[in-house]
């Protein structure tokens, strides 16, 4: 399964409580759409760290890296490339 799909499934299952793929657009802002709150974003970080085996540094916890499926996928790609 692709990284994108893994993240989509995690968000859909745990925050939107549905398997309807149309409920989440990859560009949807988690903040603006009220999908995640501050504990939710921490859970997403733990998920990324566990499943993608990358470490999210404190200073990387910014909307540009984490506020949508697209942002997370791009962030993980950048992290993997820099390793």
């Amino acid at each position: 399964m692709s990284t994108e799909q893994q993240i989509r499934d995690y968000i859909l299952e745990n925050y939107l409580f549905t398997d309807d793929q149309s409920a989440l657009d990859n560009s949807d802002s988690f903040l603006d759409k009220g999908i995640l709150d501050s504990t939710g974003i921490l859970e997403v970080i733990y998920f990324i760290e566990e499943e993608m085996e990358i470490k999210v540094e404190d200073e990387e916890m910014i909307p540009e890296n984490l506020d949508s499926v697209n942002n997370i996928v791009a962030f993980i790609k950048r992290k993997n490339e820099s390793d």
Partner: peptide, 8 residues
């Protein structure tokens, strides 16, 4: 309006 990103 949000503590989602504490760095900010």
């Amino acid at each position: 309006n949000s503590m989602l990103y504490p760095q900010k």
